[in-house]
């Protein structure tokens, strides 16, 4: 194992958050842990966040990807609001992924709102980290100062 004094490439920074009145954070924590072990910097904002709080965290942290966990059923409403907020703050270039108990029929609706990928129950951690890495890499390539 090498331990360089300076890492030339900044690790990818991912916000992991739970929106709405839903205290079931086991899933979000498993994801946060898996991302950390895969070399990501994970900012975990915890449960019962508002879309405004998550957008603000993503902006302040200059996140590469936002991962939202929702098990309450209110995903369409919250994600719509989150996307609006991100746009308002000039941060709609940050890709958003959603995971949780999402009915299959809502997956396309979420994607229409701009969500890049939706992870349903039973999804492998491997694929989740792979998708998030790919999204982060794409964004870093496109990122502009202004």
């Amino acid at each position: 194992m090498s331990s360089p004094q300076y890492i030339e490439e900044r690790p990818f920074k991912v916000i992991v958050a739970k929106i709405g009145l839903d205290g079931h954070d086991r899933g979000a924590k498993v994801i946060a842990r898996a991302l950390k072990d895969a070399g990501f910097e994970v900012v975990y904002t915890g449960i019962r966040q508002t879309p405004e709080q998550v957008a603000r965290a993503a902006v302040e942290e200059d996140a590469d990807v936002i991962g939202i966990s929702i098990l309450s059923g209110a995903h369409i409403h919250h994600i719509q609001r989150l996307m609006e907020k991100l746009k308002e703050m000039g941060a709609d270039d940050i890709p958003v992924v959603v995971g949780g108990t999402i009915p299959v029929i809502d997956v396309d609706k979420l994607k229409e709102l701009g969500v890049k990928d939706v992870f349903l129950p039973g999804e492998s951690l491997r694929r989740i980290t792979d998708v998030i890495r790919t999204l982060a890499e794409e964004r870093r390539r496109k990122v502009r100062l202004l």
Partner: peptide, 21 residues
């Protein structure tokens, strides 16, 4: 930062989210 994976779990923010607005 984890010396093993190079990743990190940044959890301080978790306790400061009241000020997001």
């Amino acid at each position: 930062t984890s010396p093993i994976s190079g990743g990190a779990l940044l959890g301080d923010r978790l306790r400061m989210q009241d000020h997001a607005m």
